[in-house]
Amino acid sequence: MFEAGGIWCGYEADIDVIKGLDFTVGQEVFAILGANGAGKTTLLSAIAGLLPLTSGSIRFGGKTISGVPPWRIAALGIGFVPQERGVFPDLTVLDNLRVGGLVAKHARGERIDEIMELFPALADLRNQRAGTLSGGETKMVAAGRALMQDAKLLLMDEPTAGLSPLYVENFFDRIRRIHETKGVAIIITEQNATKALEVADRAMVLSLGEAMTITDAKDLTTDQLRKGYKI
């Protein structure tokens, strides 16, 4: 479904943050773990088309998507939930979801109902401006908005960063539910390795832009994790 082959990228011409990553993601929840500065956000931005590759290629659904503009990548079914600024603050929750919807108008209502079912807390907030929501609620809107795109693959960049423990627990449950009920493949970056490994099928430990390990989540050892986090 998704293949990254020898990808290099970064923010300046001569400084690469991601250094020759090779990995594939199937119909699964794939966790990318690593400390601050490991390159998790950079990697997701590159997949979403927001950052050009220096070399290598990314393929999705049999098509090469590296070098393709972000809006075309979105049209192919890749939804991106950025770590920050994932909503339109001046629009209501409902309008945020509508903006995300690429589906037909009649189907959009049903899709919104599904999102509200997935995140019941949003139902009461649907007419509230997204800019006035708490961190957790904002992340739910961002995730819901990405799902409105009819995403086949969801890229979630540290979706629980800065959330209270109660929200974290709840959010990971939702992530698993999104995958199981909607059949959406998910690539999730996280610093909270324990929680991410509870919902992930496979995981990659990233350190300074290089993959230390790619393995089944249940097989990941503390030593492998330590290498990535440079503890």
């Binding site: 088309g49 809006w71 903006v99």
Partner: peptide
């Protein structure tokens, strides 16, 4: 809605296939 989305978060609007 499209205008407000463009005005408040252009990169996000771009990534949502908005022209």
């Amino acid at each position: 809605r499209l205008l407000i989305a463009t005005g408040t978060n252009e990169p996000l609007a771009r990534s949502l296939r908005k022209p």
